[in-house]
């Protein structure tokens, strides 16, 4: 899932303080699981803004709402007419949601209420860890299911650097060395010999380096077109 973290309230206040009618708009999928931007968090942020506005003597109407997903039109379109009555939407969806709503909402600004962090998992309640960097060319079959791009601080492809210290990364004793984990896992799987082969320089064009990415499924597009024809 996409992991997000609420922005410091001071930053949020500075974004919203000059608006009169604000909607704090939550997203109830990924960012709700990480307690950053679901409907519940949107409600709390809305209350905090109201309290601060009252303290500062700023007249402001603040409402909150939450929908299932901000990244697909079918979820937010039913509410769009109402959303358009505000003069600011503070979205607590991930950056995808902020972008997606912003380009469909017309002349109303959509500001981010959270910082979108990474694709992560939930190893224990309240802890979220980055496990995939979305590079567009998966090699997890070669690395024991542990991603060196996401989990090695240097995204090295050919084993651990000299900075491995007691199984931890040179950047912090709190961070596991990704390559230490890979080597140990490959030993456990009996496939450590796969790590003896040189991985050549990668083609990073499948990652963000290649520019904004798109995935197009032609067969789904064709189906949609057929449906549209039938209806007309």
């Amino acid at each position: 899932m996409i992991v997000g973290k609420q922005k410091p309230f001071e930053e949020i206040w500075n974004m919203v303080k000059d608006f009169k009618k604000v909607l704090v708009y939550g997203c109830n999928t990924c960012v709700a699981i990480c307690h950053a931007g679901g409907g519940k968090e949107a409600e709390i942020i809305a209350s905090m803004i109201r309290i601060k506005a009252a303290e500062e003597g700023v007249p402001m109407e603040v409402k909150h709402a939450g929908i299932e997903r901000h990244c697909e039109p079918e979820y937010f379109e039913p509410l769009m007419e109402e959303v358009k009555t505000y003069d600011l939407v503070l979205s607590t969806a991930c950056g995808v949601g902020v972008n997606f709503l912003s380009e469909r909402i017309g002349n109303i600004p959509v500001y981010p209420g959270i910082n979108t962090e990474f694709f992560g998992a939930v190893p224990q309640a309240g802890v979220f860890t980055e496990l995939c960097a979305g590079c567009g060319n998966c090699i997890l079959h070669l690395t024991g299911g542990i991603c060196p791009i996401a989990r090695c601080s240097k995204s090295l492809m050919n084993g651990p650097c000299g900075g491995t210290n007691k199984g931890k990364c040179e950047i912090s004793q709190e961070v596991d060395c990704g390559w230490y984990l890979i080597v140990e896992r490959m030993k456990q799987l009996g496939t450590v010999d796969k790590l003896y082969a040189i991985q050549q320089p990668r083609n990073w064009s499948t990652a963000r380096d290649g520019g904004p990415r798109r995935v197009v499924l032609a067969h789904i597009q064709d189906l949609e077109e057929e449906e549209a024809k039938k209806e007309s």
């Binding site: 240097k154 995204s155 090295l156 492809m157 050919n158 084993g159 650097c161 040189i198 991985q199 050549q200 320089p201 990668r202 990073w204």
Partner: peptide, 8 residues
């Protein structure tokens, strides 16, 4: 950057 690693 780490476009390539030391071995590469």
């Amino acid at each position: 950057v780490y476009d390539v690693d030391s071995i590469q």
